[in-house]
């Protein structure tokens, strides 16, 4: 897959079909990758596809000017489609290099499985439906479902549906729906009071770094409501009440755009389980409107589209 990607990416640049390629290259730290955004075909041989390509690269599309060849896993491809639906990206300006994705490994889960930090491990290898973690020369096998990101366990579209070049054979979903919802199920069992206490506690840690918003392809506003001063919707300081308010409103803004890529939760430096909010919203949107973000580029976007009759009913 990797070789094919490099060949295709190089050709795209050489034939001047795109101005940029966005993909992944190995990160400096063990078992990490990092986005590679380049115009230079000499960089292309650094492109990789492996079990650690976590970032949702669609996030960079709204920022780059020109035509872009972009590596996209299933969820990333949905974010791209959603941006097309919202008129943020023109379909003809992107060449989607689709990656059928068997799921991405969550390093914090791996660390918990073996009780060691990432940089203390010799190797992490995916072998079919197993993950083999080697520490101190010893192999430890686990089911892959114990090591993938929660959102990967419930992924509905591992193989991009919208693509220009598909880099491998389609994969089927992991479909461990229950496992992907463990944290949410735990929250649902709580009384409202307990849940309030839970979130109060979680949001007391928030430092307002805005990484959750800035990694999110669906958060594309020029100016976020949280930075408005007239009126001031929320205080721009990390008080837990305002942190919670920020997240709740953000959640409403991305309803119908969020593809459950899991980036906000992954980016949060203080480990607030943000996906419990976004995924719940995703399911509510799906139940209420039979709408799933980024599935069909020709479908009108959920939140900014009105039918004539709706308007008459709504605006009196």
């Amino acid at each position: 897959m990797e070789q094919r990607l490099r060949t295709e990416a190089k050709t795209l640049l050489e034939q001047d079909k795109v101005d940029y390629i966005i993909g992944f290259e190995p990160g400096i730290l063990k078992f990490t990758t990092t986005p590679l955004i380049t115009k230079d075909k000499d960089d292309i041989d650094r492109l990789v596809i492996n079990s650690f390509i976590a970032n949702n690269l669609a996030n960079f599309l709204t920022e780059l000017k020109g035509r872009v060849g972009i590596v996209a896993k299933g969820c990333d491809s949905r974010s791209i489609v959603s941006l097309i639906q919202d008129n943020k990206v023109a379909r003809e300006d992107v060449v989607i290099l689709g990656v059928p994705c068997p799921g991405i490994i969550d390093l914090s889960k791996v660390e918990k499985l073996v009780g060691k930090d990432r940089d203390e491990l010799d190797d992490i290898a995916r072998e079919g439906d197993k993950v083999v973690i080697t520490t101190d020369g010893k192999r430890n096998e686990f089911s892959i479902t114990e090591a993938l990101f929660d959102n990967c366990l419930g992924c509905e579209l591992p193989t991009p549906q919208e693509y220009d070049i598909l880099l491998g054979e389609p994969t089927s979903p992991v479909a461990e729906i229950a496992a992907s919802q463990t944290q949410i199920a735990r929250l649902k069992e709580m009384t409202p009071q307990e849940r309030w206490e839970f979130w109060k506690n979680e949001f007391s840690r928030c430092i307002r770094c805005y990484a959750c918003r800035n990694v999110c392809p669906a958060c594309f506003c020029q100016r976020c409501f949280v930075e408005e001063t007239e009126p001031q919707w929320a205080l721009p300081v990390p008080k837990w009440q305002d942190n919670l308010l920020f997240q709740v409103v953000r959640n409403i803004h991305v309803a119908g755009r969020c593809t459950d890529c899991g980036e906000c939760e992954r980016a949060c430096p203080v480990n607030i389980p943000l996906r419990s909010l976004t995924k719940e919203m995703y399911d509510i949107v799906s139940d209420l409107f039979q709408f799933k973000a980024g599935m069909d580029k020709d479908a009108p976007p959920l939140m900014t589209h009105y039918e004539q009759e709706e308007a008459e009913d709504l605006v009196r």
């Binding site: 990092t34 986005p35 590679l36 955004i37 380049t38 996030n59 960079f60 430092i207 307002r208 770094c209 805005y210 990484a211 800035n214 990694v215 205080l235 721009p236 300081v237 008080k239 980016a267 430096p269």
Partner: peptide
């Protein structure tokens, strides 16, 4: 190019000291 302009690296840097002032 790949930076997303968040506050993580500076907030968590032990030597960064910028602050903002707000009234409630």
């Amino acid at each position: 190019a790949k930076c997303i302009s968040c506050g993580i690296c500076t907030f968590l840097c032990p030597t960064c000291y910028c602050f903002d002032i707000n009234d409630e």
